[in-house]
């Protein structure tokens, strides 16, 4: 006799003929369930953090710089972000090697390398170091003389190193006069602005304290100032002052020049006259001009020969 039994996937009674088939189906179901749970479980999180920069320039074995889009930006980073002189030198050489055809960039890198050759603090540099630096600057002036800003800076640095660090005033004056004569009015060559500086300036906005670049005087003026300060010849000093006073009578560089000259014991009448003239248009709020006025007052005192001859406006 055959007995029809209802079909069920799972049965509770073990004496059924279809038990084996049921067990196989049960296992299959459980495997499907486990697979589904595994598929739904959250995947382990990746520990990789994407690099903020796409590529890097390996400058030295232990030193790399981000590869930026332009040579100017690359130069700016090399000039502004590296504390170690050794690494900075390597970075600048890398810029020269990578962007050798861009002469303004190469020239600035060369200028920076020449400055680095003076060591961490130029005030502690020895004579040989200074002479080597002068040679480097002269090479730059010769090689990149057609770039006015580069030529002005290279010659000015020759004058500065010779005068201030080596005490070779003649060489220094000659260099300063080259700057004053050949590169008069050429804007000061500043290092390109680093990206992060641009960013901060954008956030900060502009203001009197923030826009130092705008008030940087031309190197030719600073060269004339250095002639006034350091030249042993009075005619040379007078000539330099005349040029400064004629171009910017109330400028700070002129003020520095007057302060330097008025600080001497023997002051020619022409200089006093020029000081009086400049003070008429200068701001007495500036301590520099206050000093100039004060020094002028010193020369106006009765015991001072110069003081009798001049009258200074308050």
């Amino acid at each position: 006799m055959s007995v029809t039994k209802p079909y069920h996937m799972f049965r509770s009674y073990p004496d059924n003929a279809a038990d084996h088939r049921v067990r196989r189906r049960t296992c299959l179901w459980l495997m499907v369930l486990i697979g589904w749970i595994s598929a739904c479980s959250p995947a382990p999180e990746s520990q990789e953090v994407p690099s903020p920069t796409a590529s890097k320039l390996q400058v030295q074995n232990d030193f790399a710089l981000p590869e930026l889009a332009t040579a100017q930006a690359q130069l700016a980073v090399a000039l502004s972000r590296i504390n170690s002189p050794r690494q900075q030198e390597a970075a600048l050489k890398q810029v020269i090697q990578q962007h050798g055809r861009q002469r303004p960039v190469v020239a600035q890198a060369r200028l920076a390398l020449a400055y680095l050759s003076l060591g961490g603090d130029y005030r502690l540099a020895g004579p040989e170091t200074c002479r080597a630096a002068i040679a480097a600057y002269r090479d730059i002036a010769r090689e990149f003389g057609d770039l006015a800003a580069v030529g002005a800076k290279a010659n000015w640095y020759v004058g500065w190193i010779a005068t201030d660090l080596l005490g070779d005033v003649d060489t220094g004056m000659a260099a300063y006069w080259r700057v004053a004569d050949q590169f008069a009015g050429i804007a000061h060559l500043l290092a390109p602005t680093a990206p992060w500086v641009t960013l901060v300036q954008a956030v900060m906005g502009t203001g009197p304290d923030n826009d130092q670049r705008a008030v940087h005087p031309p190197l030719s003026d600073i060269a004339l100032l250095e002639i006034v300060r350091n030249s042993p010849r009075s005619d040379e000093r007078q000539a330099a002052l005349d040029r400064l006073a004629s171009s910017a009578p109330a400028g700070r560089v002129t003020g520095y020049a007057l302060r330097s000259l008025l600080g001497r014991t023997q002051v020619p009448e022409s200089i006093i006259q020029q000081a009086v003239s400049c003070l008429q248009s200068a701001s007495l709020e500036d301590p520099l001009w206050e000093e100039v006025a004060s020094l002028l007052q010193e020369h106006r005192r009765p015991d001072s020969a110069a003081g009798k001859a001049v009258s200074v406006k308050p």
């Binding site: 800076k153 500065w160 940087h216 250095e226 560089v253 520095y256 301590p287």
Partner: peptide, 8 residues
């Protein structure tokens, strides 16, 4: 140096 020369 070029900054220092005119720095107050």
């Amino acid at each position: 140096p070029e900054v220092h020369k005119v720095f107050d």
